[in-house]
Design a protein around this nucleic acid. Structure first.
Length: 127
DNA sequence: GCCCTGACGTGAA
DNA sequence: ATTCACGCCAGGG
């Protein structure tokens, strides 16, 4: 069997769709996008697709970043600033060199649950 | 066909 | 925190 992709055209579409699915104000890693597109392990492919798509497409490519929250471009580079700017428009700011995934990560809720965030709730509020 | 590079991810040293 | 190595796969030389 042709183990690898028999329809690159299809993968491309799946990836683009996955990127479009990222909600406004949220970010997702390349790996997440790939997985969601049904292509686990193909994070690099996502990068290729976005690179070829360019900024001309209607894709919210700026919501895609590395798994650790850093942008995929070199700090200070043209693309870096562009992405940072677009993120800022969605109230997503960089903390140092990275985006706070616990705050903007798309699938953060699952992680958050496992990490059990500090239940600092206002005093007097009975449960 | 081989080798290198890349908008990546993860684990180990 | 940083660096290295590997896995992944598509393009380009």
């Amino acid at each position: 069997m042709k183990s690898r992709n028999a329809a690159p055209e299809r993968d491309h579409a799946a990836i683009c769709q996955a990127v479009r699915d990222i909600p406004h104000g949220c970010v997702a890693s390349y790996g997440e996008v790939a997985a969601r597109a049904g292509l686990p392990g193909r994070a690099r492919l996502v990068g290729r697709v976005l690179a070829m798509a360019g900024s001309g497409e209607a894709l919210p490519w700026h919501r895609v970043l590395r798994a650790d929250g850093t942008l995929a471009f070199a700090p200070g580079s043209r693309a870096f600033r562009e992405q940072k700017r677009r993120l800022a428009e969605e109230d997503i700011a960089l903390v140092g060199r990275r985006v706070d995934l616990t705050r903007h990560g798309w699938q953060r809720d699952l992680d958050a649950e496992l990490w059990a965030p500090p239940p600092a709730r206002p005093r007097g509020v009975r449960t």
